Amino acid sequence: MMMGILRVQELVSSKKCEVKESGDVQYSEGEYETSVSQEKQEDLRSHKDSLADTDAPMNLNVDKSGHLRLETIDDLQIMLQLRKSRKRARRVQVRKPPPAPETVPYYVDEVDFFKACEENKLPLIERYLEKSGDVNACDNFRRTGLHRACTQGHVDVVKRLLEAGASIENKDKLDATAVHCACRGGSMLVLDLLLNHDGSFSTRDKLCSTPLHVAVRTGHYECAEHLVHCGADINAKDREGDTPMHDAVRLNRFKIIQLLLLHGANPKLKNCEGKSPLDSTLEWQSGAKSILSNFKDDAKTPVKSSPVQFNCILHVSNSE
């Protein structure tokens, strides 16, 4: 009987009791009663759900307050059975019903087609193409469905539009092509797909920016690296004379700066203002040094700032 008590306490509290040579069971004051009471409370809350998973009904030994009693081995077996069934119930994952298939209207107009390209809804696109819809249709901004899908990075939609004859070189009002949009969206898979379909990586928009300029400004390293490996002009200048290195330095794209330098970018090329990327770096360092050297511990003492210092502060705050 003593061993039975010991096993009951170990099973309930997960702790071993010390048994003296005299055969008396020793445990801390109130520990056994507390653990048993907690276990009864947990089983009482879950026994209704657990009973539904058992093969045969169980006779629960409960007191007047509805708490499970633990007086005999049978009570202990019932408790263990309840715990096992509760664990099984936790393992069972509730299967959500599959989403209902989206109803495709008989007719899809251009507005719905553009929206479907943005939201990756191939069934609507298929219906539009089935009804002889123009795959190169554009909106008031001259943006086509391909522009939208490339910006969002929907590879399957881009692939389907190209199969239907979408033109990669169509330009919007800013003269941006689908390749520009892919670099702006940052999808390397879409960019690679366009280049494999003879998309041009040297095309220019209204700012004379190449896709490499766009990838650097938006910080999409993988796109920039892919364009460089494909042979993009690494020292190409935009309308203001800025090269991709100018943009990378101005926006603190350190990883891209390293990429451009490793592939032969010239840090001394000057833009229309006569400044090179190296000049911008030295100017920033000089301004930061001047600010630090004029710093006063007394906050009441005004510090005079030059326009260069003020521009540096704005630059740092904007980059953060």
Rank of each mutant, 00 (worst) to 15 (best):
Ile234Cys: 05
Ser35Asn: 11
Ala137Arg: 05
Gly30Cys: 10
Ala182Val: 07
Asn294Met: 06
Lys20Asp: 13
Asp109Glu: 02
Leu195Pro: 00
Lys275Cys: 05
Lys268Asp: 14
Val92Leu: 10
Asp24Lys: 12
Arg217Leu: 03
Met3Gly: 12
Pro307Thr: 04
Ala52Cys: 06
His67Arg: 08
Phe254Gly: 02
Thr281Asn: 06
Val108Lys: 00
Leu260Trp: 05
Asn120Pro: 04
Val108Met: 00
His246Lys: 11
His197Tyr: 01
Met245Asp: 02
Val303Lys: 09
Val249Gln: 02
Glu240Met: 10
Val190Arg: 04
Lys48Glu: 05
Ser85Asn: 12
Arg253Val: 06
Phe201Arg: 02
Ala248Asn: 08
Thr218Asp: 03
Leu129Pro: 01
Leu162Cys: 09
Tyr107Val: 14
Gln77Glu: 13
Ala215Lys: 02
Val8Asn: 12
Leu259Ile: 02
Gln152Met: 15
Val135Asn: 02
Thr177Cys: 08
Ile291His: 02
Ser37Asp: 07
Arg204Ile: 06
His67Ser: 15
Glu225Met: 07
Ile291Pro: 01
Lys171Phe: 01
His315Ile: 01
Ala164Ile: 06
Arg143Cys: 05
Asn120His: 08
Ala176Gly: 11
Cys181Gly: 04
Gly231Met: 01
Thr103Gln: 12
Leu161Cys: 08
Asp198Phe: 03
Asn59Gln: 11
Pro105Asp: 07
Thr210Gly: 04
Ser276Asp: 03
Thr281Ser: 08
Leu129Arg: 04
Lys40Ile: 12
Cys138Phe: 02
Ser85Gln: 11
Cys181Glu: 15
Gly274Ile: 03
Ala164Lys: 10
Met79Ser: 13
His47Gln: 10
Ser317Pro: 03
Gln26Val: 15
Cys138Met: 08
His47Tyr: 08
Asp205Lys: 03
Leu189Cys: 05
Asp112Ala: 15
Arg86Val: 04
Asn170Leu: 14
Ala149Gly: 07
Val216Asp: 01
Trp284Asn: 10
Ile168Phe: 10
Pro99Met: 09
Tyr128Ile: 00
Asp298Trp: 08
Lys20Leu: 15
Ser290Lys: 05
Ala116Tyr: 02
Met58Ala: 07
Ala164Phe: 08
Val228Cys: 12
Val36Gly: 05
Ser37Tyr: 14
Glu29Ala: 13
Asn61His: 15
Arg148Lys: 15
Phe201Gly: 00
Leu129Asn: 06
Asp55Cys: 09
Asn140Phe: 13
Asp53Thr: 05
Glu33Leu: 12
Gly165Tyr: 05
His67Pro: 03
Glu18Ile: 11
Gln38Glu: 14
Lys296Asp: 04
Asp24Asn: 13
Ser132Gln: 12
Glu71Trp: 06
Asp192Trp: 06
Arg86Ser: 13
Ser317Phe: 00
Lys115Val: 05
Leu68Val: 06
Gly133Trp: 04
Met3Arg: 14
Tyr107Lys: 13
Arg142Thr: 00
His263Ser: 11
Leu292Cys: 14
Val94Gln: 11
Lys48Met: 11
His229Ile: 06
Arg204Asn: 04
Asp43Gln: 14
Ser290Phe: 03
Pro277His: 03
Glu39Met: 12
Val214His: 03
Leu60Tyr: 09
Asp63Leu: 07
Glu283Thr: 08
Met3Lys: 15
Asn266His: 11
Leu68Pro: 07
Asp156Pro: 10
Leu269Trp: 03
Gly274Lys: 08
Lys15Ala: 13
